[in-house]
Amino acid sequence: MLTPERQQLILKFIKENKIATIHQLVKETDSSESTIRRDLIQLEKENKLVRFHGGAQMIKSKSEETSISERLTANFSEKKAIAGKAAEYVEKGDCIFLDAGTTTFHMIEFLRKDTIVVTNGLSLVNECLDRGIETYVVGGRVKSKTKAFIGKGALEGISAYRFDKSFIGINGIHLNFGYTTPDPEEAMIKKAAMDLSNKAYVLADRTKFNQVSFSFVHDLNKASIITDSLGDHEEINQYNQITTVETVKS
């Protein structure tokens, strides 16, 4: 297969599936792993896709957001593995903040019943209550797409609490630009939760690395990162120089 033809197949597959691993592209194009890696490097240089550790995805607008229902089904097994690991850090009687994200939503089934949860995630409330977990909501305006409480009311509400730990979902993790997310108002809530916590954790699958969204949340050293396997240990070490990165098997 000629290089242009193979690269068109790669772009077509990623466009249809939003994201692709190198293993998937090897199978799809009947090519070697080294060939696919070279193709991805070239296509990224041409600004046609964005590589991540072990694969690639289409380029997103820095302000683009997906709905909560779309995110709940994306990378499901990876998020469940990350959520389960994150819940292991919750100790007896902890008061924690759960961000309005899908990975934090998956944490709830693993939480101790004596945990106190504060959240800005509307979709998390019923799940917590159904499991008998004492739950507080920060208040404010509800954003329709992400079901997050945001705005002045949410900021005032969250300021009344102090957390043993906070667990934050994020859209972008970058060595130079830190943690980022599309919406400035959601960024303010994430930052406040991290600042009000004794310990902050960022929960992110491998697709969030080397990505930059519109709104700055915090520097990398503000939180420890829990993620699924990145594959390339040399690149993991780049992040470990700034913060703690723990990888889990999905």
Rank of each mutant, 00 (worst) to 15 (best):
S34R: 10
Q24T: 14
S31Q: 04
Q42K: 15
L25R: 10
T35K: 02
S34F: 07
E33R: 14
S31C: 15
G55D: 10
N47I: 04
L43K: 05
K45I: 05
I19P: 02
Q24C: 08
E33H: 05
K27D: 09
I36P: 01
F52Y: 15
I22D: 10
G54H: 11
E28V: 12
N17G: 02
K48H: 03
K45P: 09
E16V: 02
I36C: 00
S31W: 08
H53M: 14
G54F: 10
K45A: 08
R37C: 06
I19V: 15
L25F: 07
I14N: 01
I19M: 09
H53C: 12
S34E: 09
S34G: 01
G55I: 12
V26D: 02
T21P: 12
L40H: 03
Q42R: 15
I41N: 00
R38P: 06
K45L: 07
N47C: 03
N47V: 04
T29H: 01
E33W: 02
I41D: 07
F13H: 07
L43Y: 08
H53G: 05
I14D: 01
H53S: 10
F13E: 01
L43F: 06
I22L: 11
R38L: 14
S32A: 13
L49A: 08
L40T: 04
K27P: 04
S31V: 06
G54L: 11
E28G: 00
Q42L: 12
V26P: 05
K48P: 05
N47D: 14
A20D: 06
L40Y: 06
L49R: 07
S34M: 14
E44I: 02
D39S: 06
R38A: 09
Q42C: 04
E44Y: 11
K48D: 00
K15T: 05
R38N: 11
T21D: 00
K45D: 13
S31R: 04
L49W: 10
F52L: 09
R37M: 07
V50E: 11
T21A: 00
R38T: 11
T21W: 09
I19W: 12
E28Q: 13
I22S: 08
K18C: 00
V26E: 14
T21V: 09
G55T: 09
D39P: 07
S31F: 12
E46V: 03
E46S: 11
E33Q: 08
K45F: 01
K18D: 06
R37G: 00
K48Y: 06
D39M: 13
S34K: 08
